[in-house]
Amino acid sequence: MVITSSIISIGIIIASFTVGLVFYFLLSDLQKKEKKKHIEEVMSQLINFVIFIWVGKILFNLSLFLQEPMTILAYPADTSAFYLAVLFTAVTIVYKSICKNVDILAFVDVFAHVFLTASFFYEFMQLVLNNSYSLGYLIILAALLIMFVSMRGRLPMPMLLMTVFVGWTAGVLVLTFIQPFATVFGYIIEPWFIGLFFVGSLLIMFVSKRKKDA
């Protein structure tokens, strides 16, 4: 039963990001070749993220993994593995920015497109499956997605991304206090992690902007 539920959850997440990527491809005004390049970069980071989650599952359950490896691999990752995957992904993005000259602001622009759409689709599916706690987050995502799409071209991209980012952080933080819990793609998010994530992301974007302006 647990394995079946895990497979369904993974299927919904894959479908959600597929919708997000298609949404970006259809709405972006970039050239087709450039859009494909950005999509490939986002997909590469998503694959890295999944690998990092598996690494986290193993590290946090190392003794059990050595005894019964299939047991660990069959069950979904917990929040600790999710946090570790976020940290490793951030380090990877910073490394690519420094050593491979990846434009972080351009990456964040594409990822915001994909993430907001994928999150909205995921939470909508959760609501359909009778998860009432998805409603609050769904409303926040709908507002951010509408703002992100409607304000493109009207605000400078760094300002728009910062507005969306602050809105998402504030919205999820509020949910952690008015609900028993708040989740992102099924993973429970703690207030301390939201604060740490916010500060870390600001630093990464600030360094990226200074590097670009230099």
Rank of each mutant, 00 (worst) to 15 (best):
E68L: 09
P180T: 10
Y122W: 15
T117K: 04
M151T: 10
I53W: 04
L173C: 06
A74D: 11
P180F: 06
L175P: 01
I139K: 10
V128D: 05
K57P: 03
L161H: 07
I104S: 00
F185V: 08
L73E: 04
G167S: 08
G200K: 00
G136M: 05
V184T: 12
V19H: 06
G20L: 03
Q126M: 15
Y133V: 03
I146M: 14
F107P: 02
F65L: 06
S150C: 10
L129E: 07
F115Q: 02
P76Q: 11
L62W: 12
F107H: 07
T163G: 11
D109G: 04
S5E: 15
I7P: 01
D109P: 04
I14N: 08
L141F: 05
I47Y: 09
G56A: 06
I72A: 12
I7Y: 09
Y187C: 01
R154V: 04
F121S: 07
D213G: 04
F65N: 05
M157Y: 01
F177V: 10
I12E: 03
I3A: 12
K36I: 15
I3K: 12
V128P: 06
G200H: 02
L21H: 01
Q31E: 15
F206Y: 14
L30T: 08
I14C: 11
E68V: 09
F198R: 02
S6T: 11
A143F: 14
L145M: 11
M147L: 15
L73A: 15
Y83F: 14
A106G: 09
K57F: 06
F25Q: 08
V102I: 13
M70K: 13
V164H: 03
T183A: 13
K32Q: 11
V94Q: 04
K211E: 00
E123D: 14
T183F: 03
T92H: 08
W54P: 00
S97V: 00
F49K: 03
V184H: 07
A90E: 02
V91W: 07
W168H: 08
L27D: 08
W192A: 09
F121G: 02
A170I: 15
P69E: 07
A15T: 13
S119F: 10
K35G: 05
I3G: 04
L161M: 11
T71Q: 12
I53E: 01
I3L: 11
T176W: 06
A74Y: 06
M151R: 12
L144P: 01
L127H: 08
L105P: 00
T176Y: 09
L116T: 02
T163S: 15
F52E: 01
P158T: 03
L87E: 05
D29T: 15
H38I: 03
N61D: 12
L138H: 08
D109R: 12
V102P: 00
K36A: 15
S97C: 07
L160P: 00
